[in-house]
């Protein structure tokens, strides 16, 4: 068995092997199907979560600013904080809880019912056949989800600003967008790719390792994939932000 001290190295080692598997030509059709499936399944969750989060941020910002008579500035806070931090983070969380859980439980169910061994017995490599397409799907879906999160978050802020706070429509848009630059979109793209990769690797890892057997093992794998995915999403969001925005402070 593997010594306890080496356990933290298992995930990076798996990430390397999975990345190498991508280069060995995963099946094209499966990959395309998975990419579209992951995007289609995650997007609604991302859109709903971020819409309400944008709305919530606006209410909160307005409540904090109203005493200073600066209600109209609430869009600025939402645009600035949302696009830079909150919406990408929530996109990662949504991806982890929708796709991460699904991938982990699917792969673990295949492992428990010996379907993975059946593939190996045919002389096929599960890493290339099962893991690589899922990892690609997550990496592609990451940025898509991040941009969708930004748009729906801003729309959520706009709807609340316009209809609930009664701020003028174009003024609300202007304040929402005033703190958003092209640089933020590039950062969003980078964050999306990294988050997708992190969620995908954790989910495939939790789906592939030998854990408790049977149906309980399937649930436990989904559980770990979500939680560990979310933790790594938060840590990498902080890391990226500190690295990128920290320089320009």
């Amino acid at each position: 068995m593997i010594p306890q001290v080496l356990l933290p190295l298992m995930l990076p080692a798996f990430a390397l092997r999975a990345t190498a598997a991508i280069l060995r030509g995963p099946p094209l059709k499966d990959t395309v199907l998975l990419v579209s499936r992951v995007i289609l399944r995650s997007l609604p969750v991302v859109v709903i979560i971020c819409f309400f989060c944008g709305a919530m941020l606006t209410v909160q910002a307005a409540a904090s600013l109203a005493p200073f008579g600066a209600l109209r500035m609430s869009g600025l806070i939402v645009g600035f904080g949302g696009v830079r931090e909150v919406f990408p983070l929530l996109a990662g969380g949504a991806l982890a809880s929708r796709t991460g859980a699904e991938i982990a439980s699917q792969l673990q169910a295949m492992r428990v019912t010996r379907q993975v061994e059946a593939l190996e017995m045919m002389g096929l490599d599960p890493l290339v056949l099962l893991v690589a397409p899922r990892l690609i799907a997550c990496v592609v879906a990451g940025p898509v989800c991040v941009f969708a999160a930004m748009v729906s978050g801003l729309v959520g802020g706009q709807v609340i600003g316009q209809f609930q706070l009664g701020i003028d429509r174009s003024a609300m848009w202007a304040t929402l967008l005033s703190a958003v630059g092209v640089g933020d979109l590039v950062v969003g793209l980078i964050k999306g790719v990294v988050l997708g990769f992190v969620v995908g690797v954790v989910a495939c890892y939790e789906g592939s390792i030998v854990a408790e057997g049977g149906a309980r093992g399937v649930g436990a794998a989904a559980n770990r994939a979500v939680v560990r995915g979310m933790v790594l999403v938060c840590l990498s969001c902080l890391g990226l932000s500190a690295l990128i925005y920290g320089r320009f402070l």
């Binding site: 969750v45 709903i48 979560i49 309400f52 989060c53 919530m56 929530l90 969380g93 949504a94 809880s97 929708r98 859980a101 699904e102 439980s105 699917q106 673990q108 169910a109 428990v112 019912t113 049977g214 149906a215 309980r216 399937v218 649930g219 794998a221 989904a222 559980n223 979500v226």
Partner: peptide, 23 residues
């Protein structure tokens, strides 16, 4: 067996959405 995974996944997504909407 897949039903177990599906229940866990569906529950997570629904309750995360619930938390944020409720918030």
């Amino acid at each position: 067996t897949t039903g177990v995974g599906r229940a866990a996944n569906g529950a997570v997504v629904t309750s995360v959405v619930f938390v944020l909407v409720c918030n």
